[in-house]
Write a protein that binds this DNA or RNA. Structure first.
Lengths: 179, 179, 179, 179
DNA sequence: CTCTAATCGAGACGGTACGTCGCGTCTTACG
DNA sequence: CGTAAGACGCGACGTACCGTCTCGATTAGAG
């Protein structure tokens, strides 16, 4: 597991996938394309990942957890505006990879995965919610809508992080929190 | 052109697709499966549609336009709450097909198509928006978020149309309109 | 089954296999090579045959049965010499295909198959055999040894059919029959 | 060259091959299977042998020479019957390995190799042969037919060595020698 | 009510990508 | 510091679908 070759191969595959995800739809990316760009044998891919999604999951795994760590506070923190801006700063600091994952061809998969993870942690945090709006509705909505706005932002690259944070807070977080 | 056989075949294909879309992911549906369930020859599919997406587009085309007609008013009407409830009533009256299209395996395709159409009509309507929030951000957000909530609603089948309309108005429309 | 395309494809595959079997060892022949030479799609091969051996079996099937019809009489006929010469004439009249099958790279497979078929028919014919020499020994021996000599003959192409028939009769059939 | 470890590894590989050859076809035996059964590292195989056939050759090398030493006399000795019986005694005394090599999955390779070696020594011995029956025909025939009978014998395990020797002498050696 | 042309079912076909397996080489971590 | 363990490139395999194509066998709808 600590073999240097393994790390090298996986890194190459991950970078190839990210590069391709920025060019075309995730579903249209071929494993052959990935291995070719990574200058790795075709069969080698399957020695590391079961399929394309597994590679994507591996690529996104850490980032998604970090992203979740940034998003959840926005929903429970006292100062939601600051939390939203902080989220945008985090995303902005990893613009390249976030763009590939959230706005690229794999965005649908990434988003649903993040929604899934958020749902899994929904029980942990006690989100104060007004009557009728249950967490199983609010959490997916907040996550999905936030990701949608972030994807738009990363694609546009026009607004600064503070402005974008304010928009997210106003369009998504605020309404969700307004008890 | 008005050959009865053609209409019969297309209807059979459309129903087969809807049925399958309720069972599995759109991407996993095979043209062979569609034709088999429609009891139609395999090659016959291609006499009517170029590929799977073309059939989906045909199936959704009318509904999507109607849906758009229902959604846009909510964004510009004076009484947004009534418009939202009206939208939910419309969706509820076509629960089966809306569920298949919005919450089923083809939802990703359907949603992006609807966002695209809404964007194309964004110039038509003069949405009053506060400074900084341009229509090219608000429209996609409003449409995507609304569809997300509707999909959740159709899946849950717990809330009535009035309640759901209120939620949409509160979480999406209201914030978008609040000047 | 009576589709003209099917017959054309199978013929093409059979001829390609025969051509290749004359050039290299059967085990080294690739299905890709066969389909390439037959100008047939790779996957098409598997629509007709489970694997290489199935194609070989199909190619050899009729010939093997005919060959068996020629060999068995030699073992039971009164005039074994004439029967042996007749066998050589038959083989000589189909020199090309017999050479490919018996002396080519697939010979091992073909021989064992023919021995198998002969064994299956051993019960049918009541071969008069001396005590101790049971048919389950004599038949495989006679068939295998005869095929060995025929393969040598086809490779050499020096002796005429009458001479070769005499040799087979003397080295194999005679000893087997001498009760 | 006389490293004890080397000898141990080669012995292990040889025994593993023999064991496997008794179970399945030689062509279906995997190098990975051999090394696994020999409890030897996969790459270690290639430090000793170029490929599977090389190992087989090494395993069979000595035995094949001994076998040849036993067979050739039968063809030139005065008392062919005694020589044949002697051959069977030799084979019977090494029943296990001979069974694996001659009747097992590698039999085709072994037989052709033995025929090859016999042919190489055909010039050495001056086989008295009747006109028309040249040694380049008689030797391969005699060797191949004898091996065929031996394989059958080893598989059946019914007849004693004397009886079997008589059969070989009668069906193969006698006819070959009969001037 | 027929005739003619469009539509249909059936399914073979070439092709592309998949995921697997085994070979033989080459690297690496470990004893 | 040598060796087992095993990662790797390669190439063949066999499978699944796609989209194209040809074949007859219906079956509409115009005359």
């Amino acid at each position: 597991m600590t073999d240097a070759r393994i790390a090298r191969t996986r890194t190459a595959l991950a970078e190839a996938l990210l590069a391709l995800a920025g060019e075309k739809d995730f579903g249209e990316i071929t494993i052959g394309e990935i291995t070719a760009r990574a200058t790795v044998g075709y069969a080698t891919f399957f020695r590391h990942y079961e399929d394309k999604d597994a590679l994507l999951a591996d690529v996104a795994d850490v980032l998604l957890d970090e992203l979740l760590e940034q998003m959840l506070p926005a929903l429970i923190a006292a100062d939601t505006l600051q939390a939203s801006i902080s989220l945008c700063r985090f995303v902005g600091s990893r613009r390249a990879i976030c763009r590939a994952l959230l706005a690229g061809g794999a965005s649908a998969n990434i988003r649903s995965e993040l929604v899934r993870r958020a749902g899994a942690r929904a029980t942990d945090l006690s989100l104060p919610h007004p009557a009728g709006l249950t967490p199983d509705l609010l959490i997916p909505h907040a996550v999905a809508a936030t990701l949608g706005l972030l994807a738009w932002w990363l694609d546009q690259d026009r607004l600064d992080e503070t402005t974008m944070g304010a928009i997210i807070d106003r369009l998504v977080i605020g309404p969700v929190r307004s008890g």
